[in-house]
Amino acid sequence: MKPLLKDYRAWCLALALMLLLLMALFPTRMETQSVYNLMAVVDITRSMNAEDYQRDGKPISRLEFVKRSLRELAASLPCQSKLGIGVFTERRSSILFEPIEVCAGYSELDKAIAALDWRMAWAADSRIASGLLNTLQLLSAKDTNVLFMTDGQEAPPLNSRYKTDFSGLKGKVKGLIVGAGDLQAVAIPKFDQKGQRIGVYGPDDVPHRSSFGESDLNPEKIEGYDARNAPFGKQAAIGNEHQSALQENYLQQLAAESGLAYHRLQGSDLLYEAVKSAEIGSVSRVASDIRAYFIVMVLVLIVVIFI
């Protein structure tokens, strides 16, 4: 037996065998990993049809870009994370389905995201603040974090006298407001009843100021003010509301009021980064495969035998 002990090759083989047996006993190690439970609420109002993103040299709409980013987010979220989809229009959102596990349900998520369409909108207004409030109310009872994806275009324009109050819900739901669009205003495509594109919205197609309730200005400063007949003055409002740009300041302000973080959507990988850095994940323990470490050691040992 003595000479065998001096043979390093025997030792290598024995050690390799021991490592393999050890590997059979402990093939995995428990590791902590951040997993996410997200509800993506997508703005499907008309302004999301504005085309200010580029993909492969072609202009694509904000909604299309949001959909692509969401699909890629679904692909990059770690398993056990959950993603649900909701849509926002008018002044509220509707949840299409509660979060489902991203790995098992990837193809379902993929198809559902692909099917998101501005034609799903059940009403035409775009009241971002009310929609956000409604979304937070819906989600406040659940432990779901929100991704509210919008361009921030309020239509018709808001009367600042009637602001949405987020104080009751501030901080109850964590998540991100994801701003889609470019800061440069672009035209909004217009569609006819059959869904055919018929040019873009013109200045005469949309209201340029709120004419709801009382004016937020001092009556003395309004030209042609009449308390009953012209509370907003006699002048026709002129404005730029038929074009749409990402209202970043407004969204940042909404984010601050509602206790959410703000992220501007530029690339889809960055969306996952933003989700990660928003620290909205929960820690889950997953078994990770560590057999490769054992095997590499075994490999070294057998190679040594032949040298």
């Binding site: 509220r92 949840i95 299409l96 389905f97 509660e98 098992a104 349900g105 099917a115 034609r119 799903m120």
Partner: peptide, 27 residues
């Protein structure tokens, strides 16, 4: 409702179907 909503394509994933049916709790 006023418009059709595409929720879940034909699937055998029962969890996903339940998630979609559960979502009708919202108003």
């Amino acid at each position: 409702s006023t418009s059709p909503l595409f929720v879940m394509s034909l699937t055998e994933n029962k969890q996903a179907i339940h998630a979609a049916i559960d979502a009708t709790t919202t108003p």
